[in-house]
């Protein structure tokens, strides 16, 4: 298949996905959601006042026309203004996004590297003591709730009942020292709660690759364990690994950050989303959903391209 054709397909598919996601959420929130005009005007508004506000906001229009208008604004990069404070949503998210990236990136990388290491260790000793230890540990890890991990680490590291090393919450970052102070506990939480899943995933991938015939051929001609693991296995497992890494990025940035930022009071995308949820701020919520969907579309395209580069069999077709 030609590259242009693939690109065109990706683009159309991406647009369709975006349309589906936003339509679903728009329907749920706007069509079936609560009417915010009452809140804007207070309890004792007259019928005329209500009508006027609705007309001004365009809420008297039929649903599909409202959706179309929203889409039109989206196409121009306009995500509307927040219901709560009237700030443009793009500015809001533009401020929050870098904070979230700074917050979750170290944990994301560390969690995957640790998982890869433990997974390789377990897979190489499949069925042995190391494997049992790692698998047993990961079962325990899978049984930890994110929330429990956060609270536990907070007690242990941020309160006088534990080591009391870090501030309990907040995000006043202006240099490396303050960054470490505020980001360490959230990072550790993220690593700890994802480690079980990551280890299992990498172990499964490596076990899969180690079982392949070409690995036996390499071993039969004298390959060392490090050649097998770091050259044959790693390069062959690039496709599933990259796919998973890329696809987890949007989830970590939005879902993962939601609890972390809410709990620690960090002004990132997750906190913005949470505030929008509690206050029923529809434009912001729609924007977060759209942002996630866009990230998925991008990730899909990147994953596709990476897999083509990683696997010579896919270059040919």
């Amino acid at each position: 298949m030609s590259l242009a054709r693939t690109l065109a397909q990706r683009l159309v598919y991406g647009a369709l996905l975006l349309l589906g996601v936003t339509l679903l959420c728009f329907t749920l929130m706007v069509q079936f959601g609560p009417d915010k005009t009452y809140e804007l005007l207070g309890k004792n508004a007259s019928a005329e006042q209500l009508e006027e506000v609705r007309r001004a906001l365009g809420h008297d229009q039929p649903f599909l026309r409202r959706y179309a208008r929203w889409l039109g604004e989206l196409a121009q990069g306009d995500l509307g203004t927040s219901d709560t404070n009237g700030e443009p949503v793009t500015a809001l998210l533009g401020r929050a996004f870098p904070v979230t990236v700074m917050l979750v990136l170290p944990g994301f990388i560390l969690g995957n590297l640790l998982g890869l290491g433990l997974g390789m260790l377990a897979a190489w000793h499949r069925g042995g003591a190391w494997d049992r230890l790692v698998l047993g540990g990961s079962v325990a890890g899978l049984s930890l709730s994110f929330l429990v991990v956060i609270i536990l680490l907070q007690i242990l590291l941020c309160t006088p009942y534990g080591l009391n090393l870090f501030p309990t919450r907040g995000w006043r970052v202006d240099d490396l020292g303050s960054y470490l102070a505020y980001a360490t506990v959230p990072t550790l939480s993220l690593v700890l709660v994802t480690l079980g899943y990551n280890t299992r995933f990498y172990r499964a991938v490596v076990v899969d690759e180690l079982g392949r015939d070409h690995v036996r051929t390499a071993l039969a001609f004298g390959a060392t364990p490090s050649t097998v693991l770091f050259s044959h296995v790693l390069k062959n497992s690039l496709v599933p690994v990259l796919t998973r890494l890329l696809y987890s990025i949007p989830l970590v940035l939005v879902s993962g950050s939601l609890l972390l930022e809410t709990y620690f009071g960090i002004p990132g995308v997750g906190k913005v989303a949470f505030d929008a949820i509690t206050s029923g701020d529809q434009p912001v919520l729609l924007a977060v959903v759209t942002l996630t969907a866009v990230m998925f579309v991008v990730v899909q395209a990147v994953a596709d391209a990476c897999c083509r580069l990683a696997d010579p069999r896919m270059q040919a077709s």
Binding site: F221, G222, A223, H232, K235, L238, A310
Partner: peptide, 30 residues
């Protein structure tokens, strides 16, 4: 001893070689 001492050829040619390296690089590595 594996390699120069004792080596082995397996049944399935479809999977016997590493799909992501060229034949030459696999030979050279050995």
């Amino acid at each position: 001893v594996r390699g120069p001492g004792i080596a082995m050829v397996f049944q399935d040619p479809a999977t016997a070689l590493d799909p992501v390296f060229t034949v030459g690089s696999q030979l050279r590595r050995v």
